[in-house]
Simulated assay, not measured.
Amino acid sequence: MKWIQKHTIQITECISLTFILLFVYAAASKLFDYHKFRAQLMQSELLAPYANILVWMIPLLELGIAILLLFPKLRLQALTFSVILMISFTIYIWYILKYSDHIPCSCGGIINTLSWTEHLFFNLMLILLAIIGTKLSIHIKHTT
């Protein structure tokens, strides 16, 4: 038996834990510094009209996905949502880098040490990780 087949569940759990930590940390940093996060959204010409909704919706989505990742039976759906959310964030970053005259303030927390380009590549790596987790979750579902 191949190593990957033998350890599929553990790998999927590690990927899920990575996203749980990422999303809880990101949501908490947004909620704890609500006014800063709202101000950052207001600086974005693309997101400013929706800032009052997004300031709550984004952290709630992140926390919701993190909670779903805790449950093995919901993990496939949660990892799929993780892919979608990370793709959405990545498209936004790409749009800002490509089309925006004004690049708003960076994200909060540890991510604020990254440039927007580095953040784009960081997100691309997370998308890849979420896709791997999704594929492994599909494999687990078909073998159990």
Rank of each mutant, 00 (worst) to 15 (best):
K2Y: 09
W3A: 07
I4Y: 15
I4M: 13
Q5V: 08
Q5K: 12
K6N: 13
K6D: 14
H7F: 08
H7W: 10
T8M: 08
Q10S: 12
I11R: 00
T12A: 13
E13W: 10
C14L: 14
C14M: 13
S16G: 06
S16P: 01
L17P: 08
F19W: 00
I20H: 00
L21D: 03
F23K: 00
F23M: 00
F23C: 01
V24Q: 04
V24A: 06
A27K: 00
A28Y: 09
A28C: 08
F32G: 00
D33K: 02
D33S: 06
Y34K: 05
Y34D: 05
K36W: 05
K36L: 07
F37K: 01
A39I: 06
Q40T: 02
P49W: 11
P49R: 11
Y50V: 02
A51C: 05
N52E: 11
I53F: 15
L54I: 11
L54A: 15
V55K: 09
W56M: 14
L60R: 00
E62P: 00
I65Y: 00
I67D: 07
L68Q: 01
L69A: 08
L69G: 12
K73F: 10
L74P: 03
L74N: 10
L79H: 05
L79M: 07
L79W: 02
F81T: 11
S82T: 09
V83K: 03
V83I: 10
I84R: 03
L85E: 04
I87W: 06
S88D: 04
F89L: 15
T90F: 15
I93R: 03
I93N: 06
I93D: 04
I93H: 07
W94G: 14
Y95I: 12
Y95T: 13
L97H: 01
L97R: 00
K98R: 13
K98M: 10
Y99I: 05
Y99G: 05
Y99W: 07
S100Q: 07
D101L: 10
D101G: 07
H102A: 11
I103P: 02
P104V: 15
P104F: 11
C105P: 13
S106I: 04
S106C: 13
G108F: 05
G108P: 06
I110C: 11
I110Y: 14
I111S: 04
N112M: 10
S115G: 04
W116Q: 04
W116P: 08
T117Q: 05
T117E: 03
T117K: 05
T117F: 05
H119G: 02
H119F: 02
L120H: 10
F121H: 10
F122H: 04
N123E: 08
L126I: 08
L126W: 04
I127P: 03
L128E: 04
L129T: 07
A130G: 12
A130C: 13
A130I: 15
I132N: 12
I132W: 15
G133W: 03
G133P: 06
I138S: 11
H139A: 10
H139S: 11
H139M: 07
I140S: 02
I140D: 01
K141Q: 06
H142Q: 14
T144W: 08
